[in-house]
């Protein structure tokens, strides 16, 4: 297996008015091709920062990181990842089809190629038939699905997702989680997924990275023994609960509640 992301003793310190904040400290991590890796931890643990470092949206202050064997900035210029943000960030003046077309326009895909890719990505997120709708005409869950379609449109092998379902209610979230698993199985992509929900992390991942704050660091990496095929009911099995328990223990160990 080849590493899609490889971080070695990675550190990132933000200088602020009240002194330096260590967002990431000595992070060592490999993400292999085809993995579904979740990052879980309380706020301030650096999970989003780590994702942003992979995406070249933040610059590390120490250590090394490679994405597809190159530096993050080269990987970004090569358009080798799709990023899904916490909010859909759809452009309100573009309909769904045009929103999905946005990266394709920037990357200068031909008109016919664009049409085909829009159709395929909207189909992957079950939004066929909503091409001409404007974002405000869609529910929050559908908007986030459209933003996933936009990230899929240019077919990068790596998908970075930063709490994409964090703002949605539990029922919609369950539904989107199982859809995401199907999508992952169909597209064979590598997915890095930030969340603060234990069931979500355990349900989705092949590898769970538990992080803790002050300084932001990795406290545990759990390889999930769950099968690839996961119905929603798997969440009531003993295996599932055992992993969830280990994640919870990891979170507790890394977090001092005295503060």
């Amino acid at each position: 297996m080849t590493s899609v992301v490889s971080a070695k003793s990675l550190g990132l310190t933000f200088p602020t008015a009240d002194g330096d904040v260590v967002a990431l400290s000595n992070v060592n991590l490999e993400i292999e091709k085809g993995e579904f890796v979740s990052f879980i931890g309380p706020s301030g643990c650096g999970k989003t920062t780590f994702l942003r470092v992979i995406a070249d949206l933040e610059q590390p202050t120490s250590g090394t990181i490679t994405v597809n064997g190159t530096s993050p900035s080269e990987a970004r210029v090569n358009r080798s990842y799709g990023y899904v943000f916490q909010a859909p960030a759809l452009f309100p003046w573009r309909n769904i089809e045009k929103n999905v077309a946005l990266p394709l326009e920037i990357m200068r895909f031909s008109e016919t190629e664009r049409r085909e890719r829009i159709r395929k990505s909207l189909e992957l997120v079950n939004l066929s038939g909503f091409e001409k709708k404007f974002p405000w005409q869609l529910s929050g869950g559908m908007q986030q699905r459209a933003s996933i379609a936009r990230a899929l449109a240019f077919d990068a092998d790596l998908l970075l997702m930063d709490e994409p379902f964090g703002a949605l209610d539990e029922i919609v979230r369950d539904h989107l989680n199982s859809e995401l698993l199907k999508l992952w199985a169909r597209t064979q992509k590598t997915i890095a997924f930030v969340t603060h929900s234990i069931p979500e992390a355990v349900y989705l991942s092949t590898k769970i990275v538990v992080m803790s704050p002050r300084p932001g660091r990795v406290t545990d990496v759990i390889i999930s023994p769950l099968p690839k095929e996961r119905p929603l009911e798997i969440r009531e099995t003993p295996e599932f609960l055992e992993i969830a328990h280990r994640v919870r223990e990891g979170l507790r160990a890394g977090h001092s509640y005295d503060e």
Binding site: D56, R76, V77, Y83, F85, Q86, I106
Partner: peptide
């Protein structure tokens, strides 16, 4: 977030 999005496309 929208500016970041454009950056991820290296627009």
């Amino acid at each position: 977030i929208q500016i970041d999005l454009m950056r991820t496309y290296s627009a």
